[in-house]
Measured scan of single mutants.
Amino acid sequence: DLRKKIVDLHKSGSSLGAISKRLKVPRSSVQTIVRKYK
């Protein structure tokens, strides 16, 4: 699940930009998912 991957990467200390590059999703999507998770 993409959300879980993003949250896991964020927990392990990756920046939003790094996560978005790695998973090839827009940075804004990463930000939204991380914000919802918090």
Rank of each mutant, 00 (worst) to 15 (best):
L23V: 05
T32D: 13
I6Y: 00
K4S: 09
S28N: 10
D8Q: 13
K11Q: 09
Q31C: 14
I19N: 00
G13Q: 01
I33N: 04
S20I: 05
D8H: 10
L9W: 05
K4H: 10
R3K: 10
R22A: 15
L16E: 05
R22Q: 15
K38H: 15
K38I: 13
A18K: 07
S14M: 15
G17T: 15
A18V: 08
K11Y: 07
T32S: 13
D1R: 12
V30F: 00
H10Q: 03
G17R: 15
S28M: 06
V25K: 03
S12Y: 06
T32N: 14
R35A: 11
K21P: 03
D1K: 10
L9I: 01
S20V: 08
R22D: 09
D8L: 13
P26K: 09
Y37S: 08
Q31L: 06
K38V: 10
K36T: 07
S14Q: 14
K21D: 07
R27V: 13
V25T: 04
I33S: 04
A18I: 07
H10D: 01
D8I: 12
V25H: 03
L16Y: 11
A18M: 10
R35D: 13
L9Y: 05
S20W: 00
K38R: 11
I19W: 00
V30R: 03
V30P: 02
S15L: 03
K11I: 13
L2V: 08
I33L: 03
D1H: 11
R3L: 12
K24A: 09
G13N: 04
G17M: 10
S12H: 10
K21G: 05
Y37L: 11
S12L: 13
P26Q: 07
R27K: 13
D8V: 09
S28A: 10
I33P: 02
K4W: 11
K24D: 09
H10C: 12
K21Y: 01
H10W: 15
G17V: 10
S12D: 08
P26I: 05
S20M: 04
S14K: 13
S28I: 08
K11R: 13
S28T: 10
K4C: 09
L23S: 02
S14H: 15
D8M: 14
A18P: 02
K21A: 08
I19S: 01
L9M: 13
L2Y: 06
I6M: 03
R35G: 08
I6H: 00
D1I: 12
S14G: 06
R22P: 00
R35L: 07
L9D: 02
I33Y: 00
S20P: 00
R27A: 07
I19P: 01
S12W: 07
R35H: 11
K24F: 06
K24V: 06
Q31I: 14
G17H: 14
L2Q: 06
R3M: 12
D8G: 08
H10Y: 15
R35S: 09
L16Q: 06
T32I: 14
G17L: 09
Q31N: 08
R3V: 14
R22V: 11
K21R: 13
K5Y: 09
K36P: 00
G17P: 04
S14V: 15
S14L: 15
V7G: 02
I19R: 00
L23M: 07
I33H: 05
A18Q: 13
Q31S: 12
R35M: 07
Y37Q: 06
K5M: 14
L16A: 10
T32M: 12
K38Q: 12
S29A: 13
L2A: 05
R27Q: 06
P26N: 08
K5L: 14
A18G: 06
L16C: 12
L16F: 09
I19M: 02
K21I: 09
I19E: 00
V7R: 06
K21H: 08
R35Y: 05
I33G: 04
V34I: 14
R3S: 10
A18E: 14
V30M: 02
K36H: 10
L23G: 03
V34A: 03
S15W: 02
H10A: 07
K38S: 10
V7L: 15
S15E: 03
R3I: 15
K38Y: 13
S29R: 14
V34Q: 01
K36N: 10
T32W: 09
A18T: 09
S15I: 00
S29Q: 14
L23P: 02
R27G: 04
P26W: 04
K21L: 06
R3H: 13
S15H: 03
S12K: 12
S29V: 15
L9F: 05
L16W: 04
R22S: 12
V7F: 09
S29P: 03
K36L: 10
S29W: 15
K5W: 11
L9G: 02
K38P: 06
K24N: 14
R27H: 06
A18F: 09
K4Q: 12
I6G: 00
S29L: 15
V34R: 00
L16D: 05
R35V: 06
V7W: 12
L2K: 06
V34G: 02
K21V: 07
R22W: 08
R27S: 04
L16M: 11
D1S: 14
D8A: 14
S29I: 15
R3C: 14
L16P: 08
S12G: 11
K11M: 13
Y37M: 10
D1E: 12
